[in-house]
Design a protein around this nucleic acid. Structure first.
Lengths: 208, 208
DNA sequence: CCTACCGATCGGTAGG
DNA sequence: CCTACCGATCGGTAGG
C-alpha cells in the first residue's frame, strides 16, 4: 500500500466530514482549498476533481452537515413518542450534540448562518433553507403536542418553536465564550421549565 | 479644499464607525485593510498610521462597537425606573436597535463572537469580555427587580439573563434569514410573556 | 498621510 | 488524481 491507494479510498463523504469540522473553526468561507487538501493529504486539484469550484464544495459541505444534523439530532428525537416528549427530545438531543463536542469549532449551522446572513448568493440561500426546515420541524412537533392534548389549544406553535430554537442558539454562543457546563444546564432548564409550565401532563417530562 | 484636508478630518472615530459597519458584512477578520481604505478614500498606510497591525485595528473596532452598544441600548434602558421595567427596556431597546437596521450586516457582536469563538487570541478574549459584561448587566437588572419585590424572591437572575439574551441572539439570526417583522415581534413577545408570568405587578409592563 | 514594493496565500487552470 | 503555474489579493514594510 503506497499511500496513493489509501488516499484514493477517501470517499467524498470522508472529505466532506473533514470539511464540516474545519469550517466550524475557520468559517465556511475561511475554509481554504489548500488547507483542506493539506489536512487530508491530497492535492488541491484532487478536490477540484470532486467539485468544480469552492462554491460547489461549500454547498456540498452544507448538505453533509444537514445529514449529520438529521442523524445525530432529528432521528433520535423522532424515536420518542409523538407529543411534548418529542419536542423536548429535539432540544435535548441538540444540546447533547453540542456538549459532546464532536465539531471542533461549535455548531456548523450557527457559525455559517451568522457568517453568510449578509452575503447574498446560493450559499446563503441553502443555509436559510436548512434553517427554515429545522424551525418547521420544531413547529410541527409543537403542533402535534397540541393535537395530542399535551399542550393547551391556544399555544402558538411557531412562537414556541422560536423560543426552543433561541435556547439552542444561545447555548452554542454562550458555551463557547463562557462556562460550557453551566450554559448547557441553563439551556436545558429554560426549555424544560417552559414546557412543564405549558403541558397538561407534567409527568411526561423530567423534573425541572 | 483639495480633498486631502477633507480626508485628514476623518477622525479615528469616523474610520472606526465605518469599520464596524463593514465588519458586520465581511466579518471582523474578513474585513481587509485595502477594502476599508478604499471605502474611506484613504490609502492603506493611512490606516497603519493609526493602528500598528490589523489585530490592533480589530481591537479598536470592538471597543467602538461597545461604545455604540452602550449609547444605543444600555443608556436608554437605564433611563427607565429600576426593576422589571428596566430589564424589559434592555431587551426592547436591543430589538429596536436591530429593527432600525443601522448596521448593514446585522449585529456586530453576534457576528464577531460566532466568527472568533474558535480562534484563541486577544480578539476572542476582548469579545468574550464584552459578552460577559452584557450578561452581567442583564443579571444585575434582574437582581434589582427581585430586590424591588417586582420579581419573586426565588428567581435565578443568571438564568433569567440567559433567557433574555437568548431571545435577542435568536432575533438577529432569525430576522436575517427569514421574515424580520415576524421575528422581532416573536423576540419581544417571548421575553414580555416571561416577565409578565413572573412579575408580582403586571401593570408595570405593557400588554403581551 | 503617500507610492511602491515585499512574500505568502488565495481560487482556479493547463497539461498530463 | 498529480505538478506547475496564473492573476489577484492579503497584511505589512521602506522610504519619503
Amino acid at each position: 500500500m503506497d499511500g496513493r491507494l489509501l488516499r484514493g479510498e477517501r470517499s467524498r463523504g470522508a472529505i466532506l466530514d473533514a470539511a464540516v469540522g474545519l469550517a466550524t473553526e475557520a468559517g465556511l468561507d475561511g475554509l481554504s482549498l489548500s488547507q483542506l487538501a493539506q489536512r487530508l493529504g491530497v492535492s488541491k486539484s484532487g478536490l477540484f476533481a470532486h467539485w468544480a469550484s469552492k462554491e460547489d464544495l461549500q454547498l456540498a459541505v452544507i448538505d453533509q452537515a444537514r445529514l449529520q444534523w438529521v442523524d445525530r439530532i432529528v432521528s433520535p428525537a423522532l424515536r420518542q413518542p409523538r407529543g411534548v416528549r418529542r419536542l423536548w427530545a429535539a432540544h435535548e438531543t441538540r444540546i447533547a450534540f453540542y456538549a459532546e463536542g464532536l465539531l471542533p469549532g461549535g455548531c456548523f449551522f450557527a457559525n455559517a448562518q451568522f457568517e453568510f446572513d449578509a452575503r447574498p448568493g446560493v450559499v446563503r440561500d441553502r443555509l436559510a433553507e436548512a434553517f427554515a426546515e429545522w424551525l418547521a420541524l420544531l413547529e410541527r412537533l409543537a403542533a402535534e403536542a397540541i393535537e395530542a392534548g399535551e399542550l393547551p389549544a391556544g399555544t402558538d406553535p411557531a412562537q414556541l418553536a422560536f423560543e426552543v430554537n433561541a435556547a439552542g442558539v444561545a447555548a452554542v454562543l454562550h458555551s463557547r465564550l463562557l462556562d460550557p457546563a453551566d450554559t448547557f444546564a441553563r439551556a436545558r432548564h429554560a426549555v424544560l421549565r417552559r414546557l412543564r409550565d405549558l403541558t397538561t401532563d407534567p409527568t411526561l417530562l423530567p423534573e425541572a
